[in-house]
Each structure stands twice: as structure tokens, then as C-alpha cells.
């Protein structure tokens, strides 16, 4: 197993936010975590990345407890694209992507680090904006830069926190397809998402979180009208598009 979470609880002060989370993710799997606001999606991602410390339970990557492999060790295994990142001071796109090599180096990037940055910037079509300031970019470009930074880490697992939330339709698909493509090379993806249709279309496995507990886990079939109504309080129906099933919201359940 690439990632294994067992019996994990997390609490902010005394408020229990995640309760008894158990999860196994295989290498190259694309897992999406969905659930209403405040259901604990982002918290779960931050726990996996050791940014937040669970109250109890274990998180293992390749069979090793993440508490025992050091911060650099975690960073070499897991890349993270936060939902929002606001930089205190200006820097260029190239320097930002280069930061992804920090877990692999000590105090200075090497020639091969620069080369790798260049390769990923080409893959994500960022060469033309390489020397621009991050602050000047559009939301879509910035998201791509953040993904490039995480990929340059050369992690085994990529965590994405609502990567499409600030993107237009074209950029949403572009980002999702690009992330999906990475799983072909064995990258494991764990992502949170509000857009159920994108989740349905790209994920191999889906977790539905409700009030900090895993409500349902499985393939695309878990996103059925009954589960969605229970988790989100919204009645939906299923339609069929050319790319597969589509979820159509109907009404709120009062």
C-alpha cells in the first residue's frame, strides 16, 4: 500500500473534526475526497501531509510512519498543492517552481534541479511566464505553477486541495487531465473537490466525508442520488453525457 491511515482522530482544541478515519490507497490510484463544507476534507489532507498532527492513529507511506521519516522525508514522498497560497514577498515563477527541489537539496539548488524545473515548466506550458512575478498571474496560471512546484518535488503522492475551485471551465479540465496523466507514471493522487461531476469523471476511488467520518468509500458508484442526498442534503438525478454519467442537482432537502 502506498498510503495507509488507521484509526485516525483529529481535533482542533477539543472539537473532534475527524473521527476514526481508516483508508488505504494503492500506488497510482486517483482518490477524491468529497463532502460538504467543514466536513474535514482539507484537515484530512493536512494530516496526511503532517502539517497537522492527528490526536490518535497512524499514517503510513510505503509502510513507514510519517512521524518517523522527518520533515524532509515526508516532503520527498508527498507533494501538496494548497487551496490558497499568499506570498509575503514577490518572487518569480521559476524561483517558485524551484522551491519544489528544497526537500532534495540542502541550501542550494544543483544543475539537475534547474533542469528538472525546466522540464516540468515545459510540461505545464509555463516557459513563457518563467520570469514573471507570481503576483501578476491569473488564478489559473498560479494554480499551474503550484502544481508544477509539487511535481518538481518528484513525490510518490500528490495532494491537491480543491485545485479547480478558482478556475474557468477550460482550465478546470486542463488541470484535471494533467493531474490524471501523472497517475500513469505511478503517481498517487489524493484530492479534495466540490465539483461532483469532475470527481465522477476522473476519480478511481471516492470518499464521501460527513461530519468528520467516512460515510461512503468505493468507485464511482458511491456517488449515487441516495448517498448524495444524505451527505449534502440535496436531491439529484443522474443523466448520461458522452463522457459518462452526470449528476444534476434538483432541489435542497429541507
Amino acid at each position: 500500500m502506498k498510503l495507509e491511515i488507521a484509526g485516525m482522530d483529529f481535533a482542533y482544541d477539543r472539537k473532534l473534526v475527524l473521527k476514526n478515519v481508516n483508508l488505504k490507497v494503492k500506488e497510482g490510484e486517483f482518490l477524491t475526497i468529497i463532502g460538504p463544507n467543514a466536513s474535514g476534507k482539507t484537515t484530512l489532507l493536512k494530516c496526511i501531509n503532517n502539517i497537522l498532527k492527528p490526536k490518535k492513529g497512524t499514517i503510513k507511506v510505503d509502510g513507514n510512519d510519517i512521524n518517523h521519516i522527518g520533515m524532509d522525508g515526508v516532503a520527498r514522498k508527498i507533494g501538496y498543492v494548497p487551496q490558497m497560497s499568499n506570498r509575503a514577498f514577490p518572487t518569480t515563477v521559476f524561483d517558485t517552481v524551484l522551491m519544489g527541489r528544497r526537500p532534495h537539496g540542502n541550501w542550494k539548488p544543483s544543475d539537475s534541479d534547474y533542469r528538472l524545473v525546466s522540464e516540468y515548466m515545459e510540461k505545464l506550458d509555463l516557459q513563457d511566464i518563467a520570469l514573471r512575478e507570481i503576483g501578476e498571474l491569473s488564478g489559473g496560471q498560479r494554480q499551474k505553477v503550484m502544481i508544477a512546484r509539487a511535481l518538481v518535488q518528484e513525490p510518490d503522492i500528490l495532494l491537491l486541495d480543491e485545485p479547480t475551485s478558482s478556475l474557468d471551465l477550460k482550465h478546470q479540465l486542463e488541470v484535471m487531465e494533467m493531474v490524471d496523466k501523472q497517475t500513469e507514471n505511478g503517481l498517487t493522487v489524493v484530492m479534495t473537490m466540490h465539483d461532483l461531476n469532475l470527481a465522477l469523471r476522473f476519480s478511481e476511488k471516492i470518499i464521501m466525508l460527513r461530519q468528520g467520518k467516512i460515510f461512503a468509500y468505493g468507485g464511482a458508484e458511491v456517488l449515487d442520488p441516495v448517498n448524495i442526498e444524505k451527505v449534502f442534503g440535496v436531491k439529484v438525478s443522474m443523466a448520461h453525457g458522452s463522457c459518462g454519467p452526470v449528476i444534476v442537482p434538483e432541489s435542497c432537502v429541507i
Binding site: 493536512k46 501531509n49 503532517n50 502539517i51 522527518g70 520533515m71 524532509d72 522525508g73 515526508v74 516532503a75 520527498r76 508527498i78 507533494g79 501538496y80 494548497p82 497560497s85 499568499n86 506570498r87 509575503a88 514577498f89 518572487t91 524561483d95 517558485t96 522551491m99 519544489g100 528544497r102 526537500p103 537539496g105 541550501w107 542550494k108 539548488p109 509539487a150 518535488q153
Partner: peptide, 23 residues
């Protein structure tokens, strides 16, 4: 100067920095 790369990473926000292995 020795820690300049870590500072550069920290400027990107605490969560980003932690995810890049900076304490």
C-alpha cells in the same frame, strides 16, 4: 545566507513551507 532557501520557501506561507520540508 545559509538559510536563504528556507526563508524563500517560508515567504510562500507556512503550510507550503511545511509541505516542502521546512520546519
Amino acid at each position: 545566507f545559509y538559510k536563504s532557501w528556507d526563508y524563500e520557501v517560508m515567504d510562500s506561507g507556512d503550510e507550503s513551507a511545511k509541505s516542502l520540508g521546512v520546519d
